[in-house]
Amino acid sequence: MDKREIHGNAALVVIDVQKGFDEAGYWGPRDNPEAEDNIAALIDAWQATGRPVVFVRHDSDKPGSPLRLGQSGNDLKDFVQDRRGKGDGGELFVTKSVNSAFYGTPDLRAWFEAQGVRQFVVAGIQTNMCVETTARMGGNLGYEVLFALDATHTFDLAGPAGLRLTAPELARATAVNIQGGGFAEVVTTAELVEAARG
């Protein structure tokens, strides 16, 4: 990250770290078993340094999804829920039913503008779905976006005509698309924690 400064009010956006993603029978093989520890480390660093944290929850409207509202899988994972309300830098809780956290309630962009936020970090689940979509939209809206790749994970995915990519392949594709396309800078949790703690 080459001595990048983390703004004093840079937001951490923690996307869809929900219990329903632990249902391996529904989602299939995943990557990056360290994702949860890295997400926790980022939340701790942000809260310890008085920076704002945004917690996002996906309320799926798809029949059978573990993330449906009212299902236990809709709940945030305990390690995230237990950290809510612990920081002094401001906190927002956003719910959404689409991929981008910018299309949720309350309005993330309006909150960023009110807080003067111009830089944010994305982490959470899934790397190539809601995390990537939020990062892309943030880049389009003119924010400086830092993509904590090792604080995300995803699952194997089938596409058209029998095409299938593994979770690690999808994560690599996301990293290339996000940084190569100029939407965000891909960084590590360690780099972010060090920079945040100054």
Score class of each variant (00 low, 15 high):
134 T>S: 12
190 A>D: 02
46 W>A: 07
186 V>K: 00
61 D>H: 11
99 N>R: 14
37 D>Y: 06
107 D>L: 04
179 Q>M: 02
189 T>D: 03
23 E>K: 12
63 P>Q: 08
38 N>Y: 00
102 F>G: 14
22 D>E: 13
58 H>G: 03
134 T>R: 06
34 E>L: 09
195 A>S: 00
185 E>C: 00
167 A>R: 09
81 Q>W: 08
152 T>D: 10
180 G>V: 01
38 N>W: 03
150 D>E: 12
28 G>T: 06
117 V>W: 05
108 L>H: 01
40 A>C: 03
158 A>S: 15
148 A>L: 02
78 D>R: 13
61 D>T: 15
59 D>N: 14
191 E>T: 03
41 A>C: 07
71 Q>V: 10
198 G>R: 15
191 E>W: 06
120 F>N: 12
141 L>N: 06
98 V>D: 05
118 R>F: 05
54 V>E: 04
111 W>G: 10
130 C>I: 05
28 G>L: 05
129 M>T: 14
100 S>C: 08
127 T>G: 08
180 G>W: 00
186 V>I: 06
179 Q>W: 04
195 A>L: 03
175 A>G: 05
182 G>D: 03
19 K>N: 10
66 P>H: 07
70 G>E: 11
81 Q>E: 14
184 A>M: 02
43 I>Y: 00
111 W>H: 10
106 P>L: 09
81 Q>H: 11
87 G>F: 03
157 L>G: 08
54 V>T: 09
161 A>F: 11
79 F>R: 01
184 A>L: 07
12 L>T: 06
120 F>Q: 03
186 V>G: 00
69 L>R: 15
100 S>W: 09
56 V>N: 12
82 D>L: 13
144 E>S: 02
18 Q>N: 06
92 L>P: 13
115 Q>F: 08
105 T>W: 08
86 K>M: 11
130 C>K: 12
74 N>W: 11
93 F>H: 15
56 V>C: 08
119 Q>E: 03
180 G>A: 03
175 A>M: 08
170 L>H: 09
9 N>A: 04
27 W>R: 07
138 G>S: 07
58 H>N: 01
14 V>F: 00
83 R>K: 06
155 F>E: 05
190 A>F: 04
5 E>P: 14
39 I>H: 01
133 T>C: 15
29 P>D: 01
100 S>K: 14
98 V>M: 12
189 T>R: 02
92 L>H: 10
187 V>W: 06
72 S>G: 08
81 Q>D: 13
59 D>Y: 09
24 A>R: 13
99 N>D: 08
84 R>T: 07
160 P>W: 04
70 G>S: 03
73 G>H: 12
129 M>D: 15
13 V>I: 08
181 G>H: 02
107 D>G: 05
75 D>A: 13
53 V>K: 00
69 L>F: 13
